[in-house]
Protein backbone atom coordinates (compact mmCIF):
# COMPACT_ATOMS: atom_id res chain seq x y z
CA UNK A 1 0.00 0.00 0.00
CA UNK A 2 2.80 2.35 0.97
CA UNK A 3 4.62 1.41 -2.23
CA UNK A 4 1.51 2.12 -4.28
CA UNK A 5 1.17 5.54 -2.69
CA UNK A 6 4.83 6.19 -3.27
CA UNK A 7 4.57 5.19 -6.93
CA UNK A 8 1.52 7.36 -7.42
CA UNK A 9 3.35 10.29 -5.82
CA UNK A 10 6.37 9.78 -8.09
CA UNK A 11 4.13 9.68 -11.18
CA UNK A 12 2.24 12.81 -10.14
CA UNK A 13 5.50 14.61 -9.55
CA UNK A 14 6.78 13.50 -12.91
CA UNK A 15 3.68 14.71 -14.72
CA UNK A 16 2.92 17.86 -12.75
CA UNK A 17 6.30 19.37 -12.02
CA UNK A 18 7.65 21.61 -14.75
CA UNK A 19 10.30 19.72 -16.64
CA UNK A 20 13.73 21.23 -16.24
CA UNK A 21 14.90 21.21 -19.81
CA UNK A 22 17.41 23.83 -20.83
CA UNK A 23 17.41 25.25 -24.30
CA UNK A 24 20.13 23.63 -26.36
CA UNK A 25 22.30 25.32 -28.93
CA UNK A 26 22.43 23.80 -32.38
CA UNK A 27 25.44 21.57 -33.04
CA UNK A 28 28.44 23.31 -34.59
CA UNK A 29 28.33 23.92 -38.35
CA UNK A 30 24.61 23.20 -38.45
CA UNK A 31 23.96 26.10 -40.83
CA UNK A 32 26.84 25.04 -43.12
CA UNK A 33 25.57 21.47 -43.22
CA UNK A 34 22.07 22.62 -44.19
CA UNK A 35 23.39 24.97 -46.88
CA UNK A 36 25.59 22.18 -48.19
CA UNK A 37 22.62 19.80 -48.30
CA UNK A 38 20.63 22.43 -50.18
CA UNK A 39 23.31 22.97 -52.79
CA UNK A 40 23.48 19.20 -53.36
CA UNK A 41 19.72 19.16 -53.62
CA UNK A 42 19.63 21.93 -56.24
CA UNK A 43 22.38 20.19 -58.25
CA UNK A 44 20.31 17.00 -58.29
CA UNK A 45 17.27 19.04 -59.29
CA UNK A 46 18.98 20.71 -62.22
CA UNK A 47 20.24 17.33 -63.38
CA UNK A 48 16.67 16.05 -63.64
CA UNK A 49 15.21 19.36 -64.80
CA UNK A 50 15.36 18.44 -68.52
CA UNK A 51 12.80 15.68 -67.93
CA UNK A 52 10.43 17.88 -65.96
CA UNK A 53 8.10 18.42 -68.93
CA UNK A 54 7.56 14.64 -69.20
CA UNK A 55 4.63 14.62 -66.81
CA UNK A 56 2.42 11.53 -66.24
CA UNK A 57 -0.03 12.91 -68.82
CA UNK A 58 2.67 12.76 -71.50
CA UNK A 59 3.96 9.43 -70.20
CA UNK A 60 0.52 7.84 -70.69
CA UNK A 61 0.18 9.40 -74.17
CA UNK A 62 3.62 8.04 -75.14
CA UNK A 63 2.70 4.60 -73.88
CA UNK A 64 -0.61 4.57 -75.79
CA UNK A 65 1.23 5.66 -78.95
CA UNK A 66 3.82 2.93 -78.45
CA UNK A 67 1.15 0.24 -77.99
CA UNK A 68 -0.78 1.47 -81.06
CA UNK A 69 2.34 1.44 -83.23
CA UNK A 70 3.06 -2.08 -82.10
CA UNK A 71 -0.46 -3.23 -83.01
CA UNK A 72 -0.30 -1.60 -86.43
CA UNK A 73 3.11 -3.15 -87.12
CA UNK A 74 1.90 -6.56 -86.00
CA UNK A 75 -1.28 -6.32 -88.07
CA UNK A 76 0.46 -5.23 -91.28
CA UNK A 77 3.13 -7.89 -90.79
CA UNK A 78 0.58 -10.68 -90.40
CA UNK A 79 -1.46 -9.37 -93.39
CA UNK A 80 1.56 -9.36 -95.71
CA UNK A 81 2.59 -12.75 -94.37
CA UNK A 82 -0.86 -14.17 -95.19
CA UNK A 83 -0.54 -12.96 -98.77
CA UNK A 84 2.87 -14.59 -99.18
CA UNK A 85 1.62 -17.82 -97.66
CA UNK A 86 -1.39 -17.86 -99.98
CA UNK A 87 0.80 -17.30 -103.04
CA UNK A 88 3.11 -20.13 -101.94
CA UNK A 89 0.14 -22.42 -101.48
CA UNK A 90 -1.29 -21.55 -104.88
CA UNK A 91 2.06 -22.09 -106.56
CA UNK A 92 2.55 -25.44 -104.86
CA UNK A 93 -0.78 -26.81 -106.03
CA UNK A 94 -0.64 -25.18 -109.46
CA UNK A 95 -3.47 -22.79 -108.85
CA UNK A 96 -1.68 -19.54 -109.52
CA UNK A 97 -1.64 -17.67 -112.86
CA UNK A 98 2.10 -17.97 -113.15
CA UNK A 99 2.01 -21.78 -113.19
CA UNK A 100 -0.74 -21.84 -115.92
CA UNK A 101 1.24 -19.53 -118.14
CA UNK A 102 4.24 -21.84 -118.09
CA UNK A 103 6.04 -22.72 -121.40
CA UNK A 104 5.82 -26.43 -120.48
CA UNK A 105 2.05 -26.32 -120.89
Amino acid sequence: MIDRKKTSKIIDELLDSPLVIEEVNTPPFFKDKVLNKLSQNTEERTATDWLNWFTPKYQIAAMVLFVMLNFIALYSYSASNNEVELQNYAQTYGLSNTSQDSILN
Binding site: I21, E23, V24, N25, T26, P27, F30, K31, K33, V34, K37, L38
Partner: peptide
Amino acid sequence: QKKVFNTCLSFVPNIEDAEDIAQEVF
Protein backbone atom coordinates in the same frame (compact mmCIF):
# COMPACT_ATOMS: atom_id res chain seq x y z
CA GLN B 1 17.69 26.90 -36.24
CA LYS B 2 17.71 26.88 -32.44
CA LYS B 3 13.91 26.72 -32.13
CA VAL B 4 13.56 24.01 -34.75
CA PHE B 5 16.40 21.95 -33.27
CA ASN B 6 14.90 22.17 -29.78
CA THR B 7 11.45 21.16 -31.05
CA CYS B 8 12.93 18.14 -32.82
CA LEU B 9 14.83 17.31 -29.64
CA SER B 10 11.56 17.46 -27.68
CA PHE B 11 10.11 14.76 -29.89
CA VAL B 12 13.26 12.70 -30.43
CA PRO B 13 15.60 13.06 -27.44
CA ASN B 14 18.80 12.19 -29.24
CA ILE B 15 21.15 14.91 -30.42
CA GLU B 16 22.23 13.21 -33.67
CA ASP B 17 18.70 12.15 -34.66
CA ALA B 18 17.32 15.60 -33.85
CA GLU B 19 20.06 17.26 -35.91
CA ASP B 20 19.21 15.08 -38.92
CA ILE B 21 15.51 15.88 -38.57
CA ALA B 22 16.18 19.62 -38.15
CA GLN B 23 18.29 19.59 -41.31
CA GLU B 24 15.45 17.89 -43.19
CA VAL B 25 13.06 20.53 -41.87
CA PHE B 26 15.11 23.34 -43.42
